[in-house]
Design a protein around this nucleic acid. Structure first.
Lengths: 198, 198
DNA sequence: TTATTTTTTGAACTTTAGTTTAAATTTTTC
DNA sequence: GAAAAATTTAAACTAAAGTTCAAAAAATAA
């Protein structure tokens, strides 16, 4: 029966993390208040402390949740048996889907650097590293199979992830471009950048 | 003689703005304190109010200063009589130079949205628009002269500026890549993305 | 239903940072 | 060098937000 309790608790935590993420993407770390996170759930800020040790803890777990979501996506893409071209295309599209879908806000948590403790920061940066390494591996695969130009992998990856991460700065749910259209264009152009011309 | 006074005041304002910009890039809007801005100049936060109405005013002017620096650069590039390819290459390099040189931090002021008044925000967004339009014009020039592929100009520009703006997230003065190397690689790869293959 | 446990509340406390101000210091002017 | 103006200071004030906690409310179990 304790499992039922635990589940309920976990669910509530999820709700709070989601609310926190929504505020976080809008206001940034310092601009996010316990009050606002709570208000969105019709709770009082005091209740938050029943579920999380403090604001740092809450936002850190929020960050982890988002990164894990991203990692799940890229792992699936990488482990598929597509060609490197298809993998990169899918990775780009998956990333954009996450960056634009309302539930996630991905790296919107720009610059985690100055808010987290050393240990928390290390954890977050490690996840980011793993994520970006998947892109490196895909690019390397393409180079080995001679379908990509012999690019500087790190540079190419930085350009690609930079372009992708910037989307959240301007993307508007109700804007002229759908996430689908953006995905197509980005995948096309960014692939052209590294695909070997015959 | 009032001009001397005015100049001295202006100089001090510049110093404060520079200090504010340095903090801003590290901590973000909400994380930037009057105290820290002042401390860097061996002043007290109270003094700041002799030069600026309040924190909003200070950071808004800081934002404008940076944008004007950027506009200066892109205007020069655009008005040169280079080919579109050279112009785009130079625009990219100039942008990276600004983004990496210690004095500027460019768009580091991510998401100005939730901090400025409507009027201030309008002003900032207007400057950003002008800046990005220069990129559009350069890309359009290239398409017209048939040296660039017939790309979706807006998408191409978003990809390019996205990749460029992300640099500030990872660039490290003492890192393995020099700003020069980054510039070269970025210009090369991003140009490959839109240059017409013969 | 009653007792027990879990969850939420709301007020109090604390800390931090923006702002004001009168006084002190420095700079300029005559 | 003294008077006037400009600049800086340090302390006080204010507001906002993180945190704690005892009591109330709600949920669960007996």
């Amino acid at each position: 029966m304790s499992s039922f309790r635990a589940q309920k608790m976990a669910k509530k935590k999820q709700e709070i993390l989601r609310s926190a993420a929504a505020v976080l993407i809008e206001k940034g770390y310092q601009g996010t208040t316990m009050e606002e996170i709570a208000a969105k759930l019709l709770m009082t800020k005091g209740s938050m402390y029943y579920y999380f040790k403090n604001k740092d803890d809450l936002l850190h777990q929020c960050h982890l949740m988002i990164m894990e979501l991203c990692l799940e996506g890229i792992e699936t893409v990488f482990n598929s048996d597509c060609t490197p071209i298809e993998k990169l295309r899918n990775a780009i599209k998956e990333h954009i889907l996450l960056a634009t879908s309302e539930k996630s806000m991905f790296m919107a948590l720009a610059k985690p650097n100055h808010n987290f403790s050393d240990e928390q920061l290390k954890e977050v940066l490690e996840l980011r590293k793993i994520y970006s390494q998947y892109f490196d591996r895909i690019i390397n695969e393409g180079i080995e199979k001679q379908v990509f130009e012999n690019v500087d992998v790190k540079m190419a990856r930085l350009i690609i992830l930079g372009a992708l991460n910037w989307i959240q700065e301007w993307y508007d749910q109700d804007g002229p471009q759908s996430a689908e259209e953006i995905s197509d264009a980005y995948a096309r152009y960014l692939l052209k950048m590294i695909i070997k011309e015959k």
